[in-house]
Simulated assay, not measured.
Amino acid sequence: MSVVAADAKPLTFVFADDGLIPNNPMPFLVYKGAVDLAGGHPEAAIEKLFGANGWGAMWRNGVYDFPHYHATVHEVLGIARGHARVRFGGEHGEVLEIAAGDVAILPAGTGHQCISSSGDFSVVGAYPPGPPMDLVRPSKEAHAKALKKIPKVAVPKTDPVLGADGPLVRLWLR
């Protein structure tokens, strides 16, 4: 398995709080073509990469088709198979095409929703050490609670793709 070059620069996006989805002042990151999946076991390759960089509590699935976010954790999504159009950042965010080999890193509070996907779309998700994942659907009440939780989420010590020296470590300074 190979990953992007150590000096790779992910795409970065900062989404505004829209009153329902809080998002985060730290940037949402996307590595395009981050993982070479030619070995034949793409989910396992992504799990090995994330685990080697200290991100665990992994799962395999897709991206929910309803808007949601996580107020207690940051999340990484490694695309193992297929492709999808996913809205990140809520209604006023960006719809991005993500495909096998891409990795998206969502700071706590970042809204996401699958708009459409190929039949073989497969994602490996993971979280840095910390509290368990929460699933929050947008509402005024949930938003108010999330605004208190999100600033308490620790910045990860490592980038799930490039480790301790990866861009996340520099870009997510508070």
Rank of each mutant, 00 (worst) to 15 (best):
V3K: 12
V4K: 13
V4A: 15
V4L: 10
D7E: 09
A8I: 09
K9N: 13
L11F: 00
T12A: 12
F13R: 12
F15L: 06
D17S: 00
D17P: 02
D18S: 02
L20K: 00
L20N: 00
I21E: 05
I21F: 03
I21H: 05
N24F: 05
M26W: 04
M26N: 14
M26G: 10
P27T: 10
P27G: 03
V30P: 03
Y31R: 06
K32E: 09
G33C: 09
G33T: 02
L37G: 08
A38E: 13
G39M: 09
G39S: 07
G40T: 11
G40Y: 11
P42V: 07
P42G: 09
A44V: 10
A45I: 04
I46T: 13
I46C: 14
E47C: 08
F50C: 14
G51R: 15
A52V: 00
G56V: 06
M58G: 02
M58A: 09
M58L: 12
R60Y: 06
N61H: 11
G62C: 06
V63F: 11
V63D: 07
D65F: 02
F66D: 15
F66A: 15
H68Q: 11
H68S: 15
Y69F: 11
H70T: 14
H74V: 14
H74S: 13
H74Q: 09
E75M: 02
E75Y: 02
L77H: 12
L77S: 09
G78D: 13
G78Q: 10
I79H: 02
A80V: 03
A80R: 02
A80Y: 01
A80K: 01
A80Q: 01
R81W: 04
G82K: 00
G82C: 05
G82V: 02
H83L: 08
A84E: 07
R85P: 04
R87E: 03
G90W: 07
E91H: 06
E91S: 14
E91N: 05
H92Y: 01
E94S: 01
V95S: 11
A99T: 05
A100G: 15
D102R: 00
G109C: 04
T110C: 10
T110A: 07
T110S: 04
I115E: 05
I115T: 00
S117G: 10
S117R: 15
S118M: 14
F121P: 04
V123T: 03
V123P: 03
V124L: 10
G125C: 10
A126D: 06
P129H: 08
G130A: 09
P132S: 08
M133Y: 15
M133K: 11
V136A: 09
S139V: 07
K140G: 08
A144S: 11
A144E: 14
K145S: 07
K145Y: 03
A146W: 00
A146Q: 01
L147R: 13
K149H: 05
I150P: 00
P151W: 13
P151G: 06
K152E: 15
V153P: 05
V155E: 04
P156G: 01
T158L: 08
D159H: 12
D159G: 07
V161M: 10
L162Y: 01
D165H: 08
D165A: 15
L173D: 14
